[in-house]
Design a protein around this nucleic acid. Structure first.
Lengths: 198, 198
DNA sequence: CGTTAAGTGCACAGATCGGTTTACTTAGGG
DNA sequence: CCCTAAGTAAACCGATCTGTGCACTTAACG
């Protein structure tokens, strides 16, 4: 991080402005919101001239989109790619990760236009996230994995939004519900369940 | 509504600018967001001069706060005050009410400062809402009404936030979870439950 | 009536917004 | 070592933002 890592395209000459811009943006957007962060302030935080910023991004909208694109592009691999956990434990491990307001929810609320690139990315991410939950649910043997995945996803979004409003962590509440839902789904008296993996 | 109803303080002479301002604000804030709605546009929509607006409100922040204060001040009386429903049915009836993004969540996300009057109001409302759920849960005989109330509140916030991001209604998912949680709570094998009202 | 408070219209302030321009400096690989 | 691409600094643009000042009109009530 102190040294300059290879740029996005590999070859780079200067001092790596692009990376600094993105990480500064992610931080400021997170802490002050998107609309409350001006381009001047952003340049100052990234220690980058305005000229340079606009050589890397066509505008603020582009920058917002890129920030979201860089945020967890593989959708929580540190949970979903853990082979040492059973599918069931993976579903529950998601509820151990404390985080501030989900940036996709933030963008969706801050940006009115539903066709804005950032809003589209937010939608895509949420769908991808639900899909990963669904995959784990299916692996775990849930009779209706799509439903369980969607339910757990809703719990996470609820915890995120509610934490923001209440200014208090509410993930534990969501986790408690998740346990109920997962247990119920994996103990249902319908045909074959009872983890047929492991 | 066509006629001018008595103003907030009872005595009023003019044409009732204040009410028009508030209702126009609620509408615009809802459809465009708070930050994306300018005072000029707001005056135009309310058919009110800017001067008048600033005679009624000290500034935009004040107006935002007043809008939230006017929004559902009695916390869903059309559900919680229905005596014809059992407490259990009241808990579930909440999940029948389709609505766009909760304005309190919107304000909490759009406004960075946690001490902003609007943020405080948002927090208070969410606490009051959870309290009403808790009351019904207690009436219904839930062994841990606070927990159930908080859980159902989280479901609603999840549905609201997620609907915004996905641009799809997700209330049905929340309702499905609610049924599970309520049934579970009211059928738990601990001491006295089994609706001792009705 | 006429008085009085409510509301008007519009220009204007100062700040900040996103974004551009110009002329200049630097870093690094061949 | 030099050439080229990357980055710099600061002025500047028009638009828009919240909020004021001032002279004026209107509505309602006693």
């Amino acid at each position: 991080m102190t040294e300059l890592e290879k740029g996005p395209q590999g070859r780079r000459r200067g001092r790596g402005a692009r990376e600094r811009i993105i990480s500064a943006s992610q931080q400021l957007f997170r802490h002050q919101g998107i609309n409350s962060t001006g381009m001047d302030q952003l340049c100052a935080a990234a220690e980058v001239s305005k000229r340079t910023l606009y050589q890397h991004f066509t505008g603020k909208d582009d920058l917002i989109a890129e920030c979201l694109r860089r945020f967890d592009p593989d959708v929580l691999p540190e949970v979903f790619d853990r082979a040492d956990l059973t599918p069931r434990d993976r579903l529950l491990a998601v509820f151990e990760i404390h985080a501030p307001l989900c940036p996709f929810i933030a963008a969706a609320v801050e940006i009115p236009d539903p066709e804005h690139p950032a809003r589209v990315l937010a939608r895509d991410y949420k769908l991808a996230f639900a899909a990963r939950l669904t995959d784990s649910a299916r692996e775990a043997g849930a009779p209706d994995p799509e439903q369980l995945g969607e339910q757990l996803a809703l719990l996470l979004d609820g915890a995120s939004a509610r934490s923001r409003v209440l200014d208090t962590e509410t993930l534990a509440t969501a986790a408690a519900i998740a346990v109920v839902l997962v247990d119920r789904a994996l103990t249902t008296p319908t045909h074959q369940n009872e983890n047929h993996f492991q």
